Simulated scan of single mutants.
Amino acid sequence: MNDSAPTDRTGDPATPDLAPAWWRWLVLAVAAAGLLVVAWACLTEWGGVVHGHPAYAVLLAVTALGGLLVVWRARRALPRRRGWRRALGIALLVAGVAWVAAVAWLRPLSAVEPALGAMRSDAAVTVTESATRIELSPTGGTSPTGVFFQPGAKVDPRAYAAVLRPLAEAGHTVVITKQPLSIAFLSVGAFDGARGDYPDVERWVVGGHSLGGVVAAIEADDADEDADAPAVGLLLYASYPAEDVSDSLSTAVASISGSRDGLSTPERIEESRADLPADADFTVVDGAAHAFFGDYGTQPGDGTPTISQDAARQQISAASVEFVDGIDEALGD
């Protein structure tokens, strides 16, 4: 058995063909960035990570494991890659950078008070939470009209507990869905899945905030003529449909917006009148910003409010209850 070291053609020991040191450090930097992003998300938005859809927690775990594996693999000099292997290595590095950036961008906005307090059950409302939804159920008489709600992008679903709780106190079952990665477009179909789980709810108002409202409009438009548990209302919080549903949507519509919204601006809300049925009801909360439709702190790009969030929340909740109760009255319940 020959235990001698490999040699080149001259008989001298072969020099390992290694990648440049800067490449190794670049790979390590991307891996370290991934680990730092995981730590940052967990330390700053732990509530949103734990109480959101489990998809983001899984994404963080995969990122952490991948980062640790890369660090372990790169603890020694890396071999030089040539040809297609080199191209693959570059592609993987670029993909790693994009992955880390996406994980950072998807960091949720965690719920704050009074939403956290509204997540507790009392004599009027029972609150239950699962991996995919939050349910606010009235303990007394229950209306046949339920409310299914799509949160805004990257927002902890618990953030809407306080603003929607008055609907449950008024007798309406409220279901807040948890979207994969907190993106509403990844939750298309959640309404259909929820309807079968609530046989006592005969009809639904589908609502949503911001991007969640865009998806809510799609879901309401698809379900407004269903024979079983149809959509009878569309409740938009600082939102508008992505396309014209003025002729296809047969439900009642309520659009509630803020005059100081820097994202779903008053101009965009006004323009959405042409895309909604002619009898859609528009309510503008004077002085309210985009983030006032949930309790999750400030939001980048939002406007500067001129009223308190408590005052805005009270108006939003009151308009919501009036809208849903009005549907019951119109249908004779």
Score class of each variant (00 low, 15 high):
V94W: 05
V125E: 06
A115H: 01
E113W: 06
W105V: 15
M119P: 06
L136C: 14
S130M: 08
G117E: 12
G96N: 04
V127M: 14
A104P: 05
A102V: 10
V97P: 07
A123Y: 07
M119S: 08
E135R: 15
E129H: 03
L93A: 04
T132C: 09
W105P: 09
V125H: 04
V100P: 01
R120L: 14
A102S: 13
L136I: 14
V94P: 00
R120C: 11
A111W: 06
A91D: 08
T128Y: 00
P108Y: 12
S121C: 11
A115Y: 04
L136H: 02
G117H: 02
G96F: 08
M119C: 13
V97G: 01
A104Y: 09
S110G: 12
T126A: 15
G89D: 10
R107T: 15
P138R: 11
L116R: 11
E135F: 07
E113Q: 14
A115D: 13
T132L: 05
D122W: 15
L106S: 08
A124I: 05
S121W: 08
P138L: 06
E135G: 09
I90S: 13
P114R: 07
V97D: 02
P114W: 00
A91K: 03
T126F: 00
G96V: 02
R107I: 05
S110K: 00
S137P: 00
A95M: 11
A95W: 07
I134H: 09
L93E: 04
V94N: 06
A98E: 13
V94K: 00
V97Q: 03
V125M: 10
M119R: 13
P114Q: 04
L109R: 08
E129N: 03
V112G: 09
S121H: 12
L116D: 01
A124D: 11
A111Q: 04
S130H: 04
T128V: 14
W99H: 08
R120G: 13
A131L: 10
G140D: 10
A118W: 13
V97K: 08
V100D: 09
I90P: 00
T128C: 09
T126C: 01
L109M: 06
L109P: 00
S121Q: 07
L106F: 15
E135T: 15
A111F: 01
A111H: 03
L109D: 00
P138Q: 05
V94Q: 05
A124N: 04
G117S: 09
L93F: 10
W105S: 13
G117I: 08
L92Q: 12
P108E: 03
A123E: 13
V103C: 08
P114Y: 03
A124W: 02
A91C: 15
S121Y: 09
